[in-house]
Design a protein around this nucleic acid. Structure first.
Lengths: 350, 350
DNA sequence: CTGAAAGCGCTAACAA
DNA sequence: TTGTTAGCGCTTTCAG
């Protein structure tokens, strides 16, 4: 070194340490000249903190998640934390888990929709703070976890009420993965609202958050294998569990079946991905409050980290943050009286 | 511990170490029971390898990059390497750099389109292998870097030739960031092909890879502030530097200007993002060979890591891999004789 | 094939 | 405010 002791150098790089300005300046100057930088890993070894959070994602093709990842990464980076990325493509979650623990991340953000509960158990056991993103704590084990989500049920209810108000009575639900908690909440919101209005769920199909499957479900609703059904026998509005399926539905309706959206069929989605506002779709949807969600994730994570630093009781009950989103009223829903709208209660066989 | 010495345990977790099968089995069993796992950071401290690669991205909203990130992450993860994610949102590249070096990543993949050359210098200095993704080594310093890219110039040439063959003569180029090497190559491919065919570049505008800007450029080409220009005074084909701008152009043409694509104007893009094949756009574009690109990135990275492990000369000349993509012929380009096609050479004032 | 000992680069407690 | 000392958990010679 150039002048002082090892610990003096250490103190220069530790924010709240007591060190003389002069010494500090000198050390920093020499450090710059030597291109010296403290070794994070040696520091980790002794402090036990890595300043790395593991972010587990599936469906990076889901349009909504890239934005999430970008914002979260920027936010964490600005706090001096790093993001170790894991893509959970369904398979080999055990390996993933092992890596997550190997790298001793300070915290985990789980945005994968489906996940072995073994993972949950292991994290709990290792005392790693976990925040679930848009995934409710379903297993008993998950309850120790914090979670952040949009009030998806309320969002879907709002969308469904809109459709009813606009005179729709043959409303279909295009479902995502049946086992995903996100999908369950969305479906519930739709069903409950219909029930309250005394309307049946006119049709139900599983698109598994996949464009191709979604399109073929819609096809099945409108086409009997040989030709288009009578419109009165088809849904007059489609509620899709996410924007991607909604857009696939619109494409199918317009470009394969030759129907007009919203004149003949209204379509709504969920998420408000960037593409939803593109003129080609102009999709009415429900926006997740991404910035607030990110804030909440970061806040929960920081709180747990601070608690751990202060050696506080780590096993506080999991806190669940539910945020309201907002309706994005666009052109994929018809105005009050569509030409297909019958007075009230048009039922399936009517 | 339970039975043996520290070094014996270490050997159990080191692939090529000499250890008796019996000892090994016993240790592993006890380790499993105790939930023991070797501390990666302590290992890093001594081996100098972190098995972490830093991936630097900008524009995660670019539709093409999420796929890239997902595939790369999965690929690296399957090799037991981790991805530390950095989002370079233009600003604060210096901090980012510092973190990259702090975390002593084994390698860096740079997919940000614009980047301070200071970063390049620092990496070189620190001896960290760098692979540039879709970014040519422009600065002198970059030449030590390896790079992987699509032959963008050839791709654009192919698209442009297609337009010419289909009878277009008033071809406009909708540019991305002028300083991005990606954009420069794409523009060059278009211009060179036009020149070879004896056609002028009919119009040129800068959309900066942004939907709004792209749309307003297109608007300017077709609208003089009060009303639509004569079509003969407007481009009959638009070559956009990426799919996103191409789609924005289509939306503007169809939904704001009331023009028909491809009947009145043809549009082509570049990248073949998932949305390009959606029926609403059905965009003719040029697909980047993503899987091969990922392979090449991984191969270059591994080669450098192995070389470093073997203490070989680290400063090999940077290798540049250029891969051919493939034309995706879809419906956004008109067939041979559009109704707007004049015999040959329709010039601006014609 | 195994154990003992040294040390990777740092921080934390203590003493000066 | 500073230096000294110990040790974080591992890998790696070097002996046995």
């Amino acid at each position: 070194m150039a002048g002082v002791s090892q610990s003096a150098v250490s103190r220069c790089f530790t924010p709240g340490a007591s060190i003389a300005k002069e010494t500090r300046d000198k050390v920093l100057q020499v450090a710059a000249a030597l291109d010296y930088r403290p070794n994070v890993y040696a520091r980790n070894l002794i402090t036990g903190r890595t300043r790395i959070v593991g972010v587990v994602l599936a469906h990076l093709d889901n349009l909504f998640y890239p934005r999430f990842l970008q914002l979260l990464t920027e936010r964490l980076q600005s706090m001096g934390m790093q993001v170790l990325l894991f893509v959970a493509d369904g398979n080999r979650q055990v390996d993933l888990m092992a890596q997550l623990l190997n790298y001793r991340v300070d915290g985990i953000v789980l945005a994968a929709t489906t996940l072995h509960s073994d993972l949950a158990k292991a994290c709990n056991h290792a005392g790693i703070p976990v925040v679930l993103f848009n995934r409710v704590p379903s297993h008993a084990l998950d309850r120790a976890f914090h979670s952040v989500q949009t009030d998806q049920s309320a969002g879907m209810a709002e969308l469904t009420r809109l459709l009813i108000k606009r005179g729709h009575s043959r409303i279909a639900f295009l479902s995502g993965h049946l086992e995903s908690s996100t999908n369950q909440a969305r479906e519930l919101g739709c069903r409950a609202t219909l029930e309250k209005a005394g309307l049946p769920l006119f049709a139900f199909g599983v698109g598994n958050y996949d464009e191709v499957q979604a399109a073929s479900v819609v096809m099945g609703w409108f086409h009997d294998g040989n030709r288009l059904r009578q419109l009165a026998d088809c849904p007059d509005a489609i509620v899709a569990a996410d924007d991607r399926m909604a857009m696939a539905a619109m494409d199918m309706l317009r470009h394969k079946l030759g129907l007009r959206v919203p004149d003949q069929v209204s379509v709504v989605g969920f998420d408000d991905v960037p593409q939803a506002s593109w003129p080609a779709y102009d999709l009415t949807t429900y926006a997740q409050p991404l910035p607030q969600m990110i804030e909440a994730v970061v806040r929960l994570l920081s709180a747990q980290l601070q608690a751990r630093d202060a050696n506080q009781d780590p096993s506080t009950e999991g806190q669940s943050v539910v945020l309201k989103g907002s309706l994005c009223l666009r052109g994929s829903v018809r105005a009050r009286t569509g030409h297909d709208a019958l007075p009230t209660r048009t039922r399936k066989g009517a």
